[in-house]
Amino acid sequence: MLELSYLIAALLFVFGLKLLSHPETARRGNLWAAGGMGLAMITTLLLHKNSAGEGISITNIWIILCAIGVGAAIGWMVARKVKMTAMPQLVSLYNATGGGASMLVALLEYPAAMAGDIQSILVTVLGLIIGAVAFSGSLIAFGKLDGRVGDIMKPFMTYINLVLMVSTLALAVFIVISPNPPSEMMWAIYGLTALSLIYGVMFVMPIGGADMPVVISLLNSFTGIAAAMAGFIYNNQAMILGGILVGAAGMILTLLMCKAMNRSLINVIIGAFGGGGAALD
């Protein structure tokens, strides 16, 4: 029953995206995808069981509904009230919250991993890094489009970014292959979170404001991948499918947007600071 509902939700995502890519059906497609999301959420609330076979208890459901109520009210009101011209930055802001949620889920699930369970630690760490980069990167993209953050391009930033990327990856590998239990590795996971957040800022900072839509699309693709990684933590088909779908569609969309501007993705990213950023995943 749970898996059947998730399958229907995932199919609604796919058809929703398909309809969204044609002018006449786009609005309906958005509704279909939203319906799929509603179905996936209700299914999880009612049917989810953890590995011990326990469902979600009623007291917790109230807290969940309150949190969803708060998020939905704010999200809806801001989306309705914002000026038409401010929409791209709003998309970026909402993408940041998605990345932030992925980061927090990975951060909070890490202590539950078994020592030496390389596969689950790997997906947790990947979800953490990608989610954190999408979070801070999208916030900077929001700031740039909103005119709060200027473009800062200094030649030495290339080297800082390279050093940041290498040290983030090195710390990630260290955490994944370490035989120590997660409770002894918390310092490393907090360090990794901080490094990834800084990397997200430094990755977007040198890219010109006009290229922001492409960068937001790329970061959107990252958010999808981060959600899919979290899906592997829970072995949740809706999250894996939806996440990978957005990851792939977002990547292609990024390339299409570059093509529409007659530029290559490498040109957008590396043209600004000369190295390394695109190799994140």
Binding site: G16, A33, V91, Y94, A101, N220, A227, G243, V246
Partner: peptide, 8 residues
Amino acid sequence: GANAISGV
């Protein structure tokens, strides 16, 4: 729209 779906 894809961004909203990544909210899974």
